[in-house]
Design a binder for these strands. Structure first.
Length: 407
DNA sequence: ATGTCC
C-alpha cells in the first residue's frame, strides 16, 4: 500500500475551486476574523467538498472549531487529539428541592475518588479491548472539560413533552478520550509528514487511523458514562441517560466523510446539550430535519470568545477575584483547584450560549427545549492524600512548573 | 486537548 498521501490525483495542490461554505450564524454572533480566515483555508484543503460553520466558531490550531466539513479524504489534523470528545446529559433521581449546594459540592469534590471497580466487562460490552486504558476511564481531564450539576431554569412545552422535568436535577458531562486520542493523534502526525493534505480513506494509513478513531469515539462515550456514574455515586443518586452527543469525530456519509470539529453530530429528532459555562445557562435543544442542510452538525457549546493566554490579563488578577470566579449568580459553585484553569475557563472567556442557540433556531437547525443553570461545576480537585504524600516525599520533577498552582 | 517541556 505504501504512502497513502498523494494517492489521489494531486492532493497536495489546493483545489482550484474551494468548497462551498454554509454559515449558520447571524450578524450578532461574535466571530473573529482569524476564524473566518481559517474557514477559507479549510475550504481549500484536498478533498473538501462542503463546510457548515456554526455560531460558536472560533480559531483553533489546525483550523476553525465549530465546523462540520464534508471531505472525500480523511483529515486527522482537523479532528485533533481529543478524538470522540462530546457532551452527555443525564437525569438524576434527585429532586431539586432536596438539594443543598454546599453539601453536593462537598460530595462531588470526591468524584474521581469514587471506586468504579473492574471495567473490563464494560469495555468488552462496548466492543473495545478489555485492557484499553481502563485506569483512565471515569476521569474528566483538563481544559474545558467538566461534570456539572444543573437545574432547569426555563422549560418549553416541547421540553416537557421530551420528558425534561423542572423539579429534577441533571448532570452535564463534557469529556473525551484522554491520553488515548492524544496518542492516536501524535502517532498520525509522526507517521505522516504531509498530514495537512489528509489521508486516503482507502489506504492502509487511512483505514488504520479510522479504526483507532472509532475506538476513541466508543471509549470517550463510555468515559462520560463512568464520570456520570462516579458523580451519581458521590451524590448517592441514580441516573439515566438523556443525550450522548459527540462533537470531535468523523462520520461516514453517502457523500464522503463528515468531520465534526467542535460541532455536535446530531440526527433529526435527537436531543442535544449546548453548554454554556460555569456561570451561564446551558441549553437543551432538539435537532430538526434542518440539520440535513448543515451536514448533521450544530454547535455543542457557547464557544470561546477569548483565548486562554489573554484571559490571564483580563480576570482573576488577585485571590479575591479568583474566588469570585468560582461562584455564579444562582448560588452555584465551581470546584477547580487549578488556579490557571479558573482564569482560563471563566464565564467571560465564552460567548453567550443563548445567542448561539438562537442563531441555530433562526437558521432552522434546532428547536429550544430548556435552559439549565449551573449549580456545581466539577473541574479539578487535588487529592488531599496525594498532596500529603508529596509533602513527605517531594517530587523534584514538578519544580519550576508555573501557572498550575493551588490556592 | 495531552501525565500539559525534563
Amino acid at each position: 500500500m505504501g504512502n497513502s498521501i498523494g494517492s489521489d490525483s494531486s492532493p497536495m495542490t489546493p483545489s482550484a475551486h474551494p468548497a462551498v461554505i454554509n454559515r449558520f450564524f447571524s450578524g450578532s454572533a461574535w466571530i473573529e476574523g482569524a476564524a473566518l480566515n481559517q474557514l477559507d483555508e479549510m475550504s481549500r484543503l484536498p478533498g473538501v467538498l462542503e463546510i457548515a460553520a456554526f455560531p460558536d466558531l472560533h480559531p483553533g490550531k489546525y483550523g476553525a472549531t465549530g465546523v462540520a466539513l464534508l471531505s472525500s479524504r480523511l483529515h486527522p489534523l482537523l479532528i485533533g487529539n481529543d478524538i470522540g470528545c462530546g457532551m452527555s446529559l443525564f437525569a438524576l433521581d434527585l429532586p431539586l428541592r432536596k438539594l443543598k449546594i454546599d453539601k453536593a459540592a462537598e460530595r462531588l469534590r470526591r468524584l474521581e475518588a469514587q471506586v468504579i471497580g473492574d471495567v473490563s466487562d464494560l469495555l468488552a460490552e462496548t466492543g473495545l479491548p478489555a485492557d484499553l486504558a481502563p485506569g483512565a476511564l471515569g476521569t474528566i481531564g483538563g481544559g474545558n472539560h467538566f461534570c456539572e450539576l444543573q437545574a432547569v431554569e426555563d422549560l418549553a412545552e416541547g421540553g416537557r413533552i421530551a420528558g425534561l422535568d423542572d423539579q429534577q436535577l441533571y448532570l452535564l458531562v463534557h469529556s473525551g478520550s484522554r491520553a488515548l486520542g492524544a496518542a492516536v493523534f501524535s502517532e498520525a502526525v509522526a507517521a505522516h509528514p504531509g498530514l495537512v493534505a489528509g489521508l486516503d480513506p482507502r489506504s492502509e494509513a487511512g483505514g488504520a487511523w479510522l479504526a483507532s478513531h472509532d475506538r476513541c469515539v466508543a471509549w470517550a462515550s463510555l468515559n462520560r458514562r463512568l464520570i456520570a456514574a462516579r458523580a451519581a455515586a458521590a451524590l448517592r443518586a441514580d441516573l439515566s441517560l438523556v443525550a450522548d452527543i459527540p462533537h470531535n469525530l468523523v462520520r461516514r456519509s453517502d457523500r464522503g466523510f463528515v468531520h465534526y470539529k467542535g460541532a455536535a453530530a446530531v440526527r433529526p429528532g435527537e436531543l442535544a446539550p449546548i453548554a454554556g459555562s460555569r456561570a451561564s445557562l446551558s441549553h437543551v435543544v432538539l435537532a430538526t430535519d434542518g440539520v440535513g442542510r448543515s451536514l448533521g452538525g450544530i454547535s455543542h457549546g457557547a464557544g470561546r470568545k477569548y483565548d486562554r493566554a489573554t484571559m490571564h490579563g483580563r480576570v482573576g488578577r488577585n485571590r479575591s477575584e479568583r474566588e469570585q470566579l468560582l461562584r455564579n449568580a444562582w448560588g452555584g459553585v465551581a470546584i477547580c483547584d487549578d488556579r490557571a484553569l479558573v482564569v482560563e475557563e471563566a464565564a467571560s472567556a465564552y460567548k453567550d450560549a443563548g445567542q448561539v442557540a438562537s442563531d441555530l433556531e433562526n437558521g432552522g437547525l434546532i428547536v429550544g427545549l430548556a435552559s439549565l443553570r449551573p449549580l456545581v461545576t466539577f473541574k479539578k480537585a487535588v487529592d488531599e492524600a496525594e498532596v500529603e504524600q508529596r509533602r513527605r516525599k517531594p517530587d523534584h520533577r514538578r519544580e519550576g512548573g508555573r501557572g498550575h498552582e493551588r490556592y
